[in-house]
Design a protein around this nucleic acid. Structure first.
Lengths: 321, 321
DNA sequence: TTGAAAGCGTTACCAA
DNA sequence: TTGGTAACGCTTTCAA
């Protein structure tokens, strides 16, 4: 593979001059520029990205930390981030943590490493890591960690409150809760809002109606099975549409009527929620991804103060409540 | 930020020795190793990734080309690839093309660039590009381009045949077809298999029962509306579970019974297909991602001959046929 | 407008 | 077991 020296030699100029045309600098004579471009063409020259990165001290690459790209929230987030990357000529490095603390910690290495210019946190189970991360490079979170790093996130607390209010209005006296990862920022916020709401309401909750680490349709089906062995609550708030769908599916198979016997709410408004007419929360996740990426990029360029902001959810009322 | 020279100086050894402990080489005295590690700790040293990449001539990073990460097929593929990357200590660079030819072409740059060690093609609209790509670095495709590059892909033709055979056995005399992008490789293969089957069977198809560019739940609902203005076929083969779900949903709302009045099949076996009990085709997409990544990595290491292979679909018979 | 040379932070070869 | 030094391929500063 030809390198910059080969080009310089063949064109009869110095590396500096070649570098100048490479970077579109002025102050290069028309003739030399033409010769250099010719030689490049002839030798099928292509600059080495790592050398550029090393020399410039930056990579035009941003990393994003997600537990799993298959999860609807995260792949929508990735899509938004990816779009901004395209527009602004950046590259997207995806780090899947599978909620593994060790992997979360290892991800910091990329930043330290200088292999990425900045990092977007999709979700993190050890927020304390953020303290160190932000000393290593620009970080933006898509969960509420605004006391530590700039954060853009949905008002999950408000969403939970809206759901509880809604099922209560529909006449529920008892309510269950099913979360994904209870240790994530989102998990904790949801849990807190749930507990908070109950304190000021006559709605009842008992530990037998609590579950977590439910992520899939099948997890929902399994949960339905468990719930059937006890008295059902009047309503259950589920942190994810697919899990809600699994619950509904299994309940109906077992002759439990939704919403008459139990009201069920989902989260995210993915297609399955529309198909099953699930009452759920809609959030513009792709947009969140875009905003986070834009924030990070302008941050990395010191173009603006880093700010946090809270995006509002909307309640989609359908047939399961 | 401390670099390797700083460490060497403070530890009173040469860069070479530091490099040796960094890479876990033997032939370093216990004592020096300890001193060096101490200094590293004290200075919070972290090696520069770009320098390593440049020096080694490789990055332990693989790229993957997808139209859109939000599409179910592609995010499942990404998930599989991502898992292998984790296991084998590699990093995943995601390139979203949005079907844009210019972006597909630009993606080659990463390979040329040496910023990635290999490239996985999720989908590409200009297969001729692959000719050049494979001269630039290792490439594996997840569509059928086996005449050009190693390819791992599903047998879509077989899947269509299985579906047609199944609905015919169930008594269908007339059948419709609904595709996504008819110009994609997958679209063409499916169409061809469909036409082929009809030639050797008494099943009937008419142009009024054909549709394409249907991608979403809503597209399915709209299609149901259109079909209702004409005589329904006995069965319809739909290229995507979400579209099938939309069809079913709208039909049921309009009092059409599925499968009695019309049998409907989907494709992909995503959660919505399980929720609605849709007869569909299951393809282990995450596994395809894993296999492709493993193929690429062993390829990049010259560990094996590059081979292509055809993965078999399975028919999931449920309640809509 | 051009070129020489000093980085950038590693690895790896060759001697010692 | 160690160290010196030449790569790796580019950018950038300083002089000319």
């Amino acid at each position: 593979m030809a390198n910059i020296s080969d080009i310089a030699k063949q064109a009869g100029v110095s590396k500096s001059t070649v570098s100048r045309v490479l970077n579109g600098h002025k102050h290069v004579s028309k003739e030399k520029r033409r010769i250099i471009l010719d030689v490049m063409e002839r030798l099928e020259y292509s600059p080495n990205g790592n050398a550029i990165n090393l020399s410039r001290g930056k990579t035009n690459t941003i990393g994003v930390l997600v537990p799993r790209v298959g999860h609807p929230f995260f792949h929508q987030l990735l899509e938004g981030i990816g779009l901004v990357c395209m527009e602004r000529n950046h590259t997207l490095l995806v780090i899947q943590t599978e909620h593994d603390p060790a992997k979360e910690e290892a991800s910091m290495q990329y930043l330290r490493d200088k292999r990425i210019d900045g990092l977007i946190i999709g979700a993190i189970s050890q927020p304390q890591l953020l303290e160190t991360m932000r000393t290593v490079g620009p970080v933006v979170a898509c969960e509420d960690h605004q006391d530590i790093v700039p954060s853009l996130f949905f008002n999950h607390g408000k969403a939970i409150t809206m759901l509880l209010q809604h099922v209560e209005e529909r006449g529920a006296k008892t309510v269950g809760l099913c979360l994904g990862n209870p240790d994530s920022g989102v998990g904790r916020v949801r849990r807190e809002a749930f507990d908070q709401y109950l304190k000021t309401s006559t709605l009842c909750h008992g530990i037998q109606w609590y579950a977590d680490r439910c992520y899939s349709f099948e997890d929902g089906q399994a949960l339905a099975g468990q719930l059937l062995t006890i008295d059902l609550p009047d309503a259950i708030i589920v942190g994810n549409d697919e899990v809600a769908a699994g619950l509904i599916d299994q309940f109906r198979k077992d002759g439990i009527r939704v919403p008459e016997d139990i009201a069920i709410t989902g989260f995210d408004d993915v297609p399955i929620a529309r198909a099953l007419e699930i009452t759920t929360i809609r959030q513009p996740v792709v947009m969140l991804g875009r905003l986070a990426a834009e924030q990070l990029l302008s941050d990395a360029l010191n173009q603006s103060e880093s700010a946090s902001s809270l995006l509002e959810p909307s309640l989609m009322i359908r047939q399961t409540t």
